[in-house]
Design a protein around this nucleic acid. Sequence first.
DNA 1: ATCCTATATCGCAAATATACGATAATAGAA
DNA 2: TTCTATTATCGTATATTTGCGATATAGGAT
Lengths: 110, 110
Amino acid sequence: MAITKVKEFNTKERKIAEICKALAHPARIAIINFLIKQRECICSDVVNELPLSQSTVSQHLKELKNVGLIKGDIDGPRVCYCIDQEKWDEAGKIINLFLSQETIQAGKPC
Amino acid sequence: MAITKVKEFNTKERKIAEICKALAHPARIAIINFLIKQRECICSDVVNELPLSQSTVSQHLKELKNVGLIKGDIDGPRVCYCIDQEKWDEAGKIINLFLSQETIQAGKPC
DNA sequence: ATCCTATATCGCAAATATACGATAATAGAA
DNA sequence: TTCTATTATCGTATATTTGCGATATAGGAT
């Protein structure tokens, strides 16, 4: 079977998972780090930086764009990519809120 | 093709991606939230809470345990699961460090 | 010993993700 | 117009993830 059950979970849970999913591949982490360092760059810059083909890099960029963490502005024949400040900050807040939950256990430790 | 290239990225990038991957499914987010709320619980408690079968829940728990975010102590015929405080805090720090990077762009906005 | 409960694992099916080459599409340069 | 550079998308192969039922395993209870 394996019919996806993602929709059976609530919005908050899905949102957190969605952001994490976008960050669940080292190539996409590397792309984001590169984008932060360079402030902005075109797809071919990323291709030169990573050990991946142009089409693969393009796909990873698309995924990051789909969740909104980055944006790409068309600049002639190129596309200028950069972090989407607002969405990035929002994602950071959501994930941080989740990860910084207090987990102290009273009574016996597990 | 599709030979995985994960190993061609550096340790830091892989670590971040690994943690995010563990959190990339709403069921696992729900499990963690439940575990934090309950402080500890057995597998069947989670099965009752989520719209998933026992074997599927067991798999999700295993993934969370593999990255170290939770631990399971054998308690007779049951397994008592809870957040692994130390690893949880460490993961939080790693992800937060990544997500809280300054992305302010000087000059023209992208 | 037999039964019951709880959990993990196996085997399988379906869905997604990863990766690449080839090709299309677009826009500037010659 | 033709050429070149840049990027997106298509098609395809493979790998991984998700999900479940069935089964194995382990420990208590009767």
